[in-house]
Design a protein around this nucleic acid. Structure first.
Lengths: 199, 199
DNA sequence: TCAGCCATGTAATGGGTTACATGATTGA
DNA sequence: TCAATCATGTAACCCATTACATGGCTGA
């Protein structure tokens, strides 16, 4: 009964972890935690407790195999490799289409939607907060871009696709900043017209 | 013991529903379901089962009050109004700052990150799929924009802030399309350079 | 000396999705 | 006639987060 038949398919998170093993190196759970804290975390960030439990499951269904590595002066660790069955499942997942319903869910926009319940200044603060965050993201992305440039550029092995996800981040951060500026201008105009409008 | 002390605060979804009652009308659960299917659904889309159960909870904690409305030739319904306590809680929530961690989680980008496991054509297909979805969103947004224009424009009562969330969608959809085109060009260039590169 | 990294987990909680259930009315 | 709308829910399931736990080593 090692492999009981699962009715539900594995969640995306499982495959996200599996994918980390396609770069030709064994990885430990800890390595994966670190990978998520790096560039991956910008669009996919499972908690570390979930990473460990997901690895356990992947092992149980036979998608990865484990090897224990004893270390002196460091805790021992378990490193993982993909099995042929795992590779097959990963390939399937990778090629499946994605729902349109992605990227939904923005509490910021939800609150903005209810802007009529705030004062002009409060709304402005919210938008400025958003802008600052976008600006911060933009700077992180730009920093990573430089790092990539120093490491052989986007065309170095295994850098190209991560780089593309980075340009996505760059584009959206920039769009966010521009949008925020536009909104701030609109808020100003609106406030002025209201002041002029009342006699 | 009607109001047992909650340790955890209510989820954002509760407040999202509460907010719907700030427009000065009583609403039924069904009305809220419809609201979500409309423009709100672009960035916040709880399942209808959750809407009903969340309403139940909001009633229990005393944030909304219920009134039954008998209807001929239509099922009876329960309509809701915000209580003063509800209004206070909503105001608090609305003014709280938001985490940077928003808008994370894109399975599309996760898959793109693993593009090296696909053929050039498969990647291209994925990006085209993404582009098509962005295009579709853009069209929906544009359609809504026209509707707003026909209904007094963004400055009509209660339209302004929803309109701002719409412009966000527009900006990001456009950014998505541009990004996709850029990626497609990059993929072409890369393929050509590889063909030319091998002798 | 003390924070931070390495390394792997458990426990509790709950938010959220999907599927299922019901049934009258209305307009194409 | 038949699909869609109005209207409200229950049940099952599970993904995911937060908090807690442990402990040796390393470098500032």
């Amino acid at each position: 009964m090692t492999s009981s038949t699962r009715t539900t398919p594995l969640p995306d998170t499982s495959f996200g972890l599996l994918g980390l093993l396609t770069f030709g190196q064994e990885l430990s759970g800890y390595d994966m935690v670190k990978a998520v804290e790096g560039s991956l975390g910008f669009f996919w960030a499972p908690a570390k407790s979930q990473i460990y439990s997901e690895l356990k499951r992947l092992k149980e269904v036979g998608f990865i195999s484990e090897r224990e590595v004893a270390q002196a002066s460091r805790p021992d660790k378990r490193v993982y490799t993909m099995t042929p069955a795992g590779k097959e499942a990963f390939d399937d997942w990778l090629r499946q289409g994605n729902a349109v319903a992605e990227e939904v869910r923005s509490i910021f926009r939800l609150k903005l939607f209810y802007g009529h319940e705030m004062s002009d200044d409060e709304v402005r603060t919210k938008v400025l907060e958003f802008r600052a965050q976008a600006q911060e993201s933009l700077e992180s992305y730009t920093a990573i871009e430089s790092t990539i440039a120093e490491h052989g550029g986007p065309d170095a092995p295994y850098q190209f696709y991560p780089y593309l996800t980075l340009t996505y981040g760059l584009a959206h951060a920039r769009a966010g900043i521009e949008w925020a500026d536009e909104v701030l201008a609109r808020l100003d105009a609106r406030e002025k017209s209201r002041k002029g409008g009342k006699r």
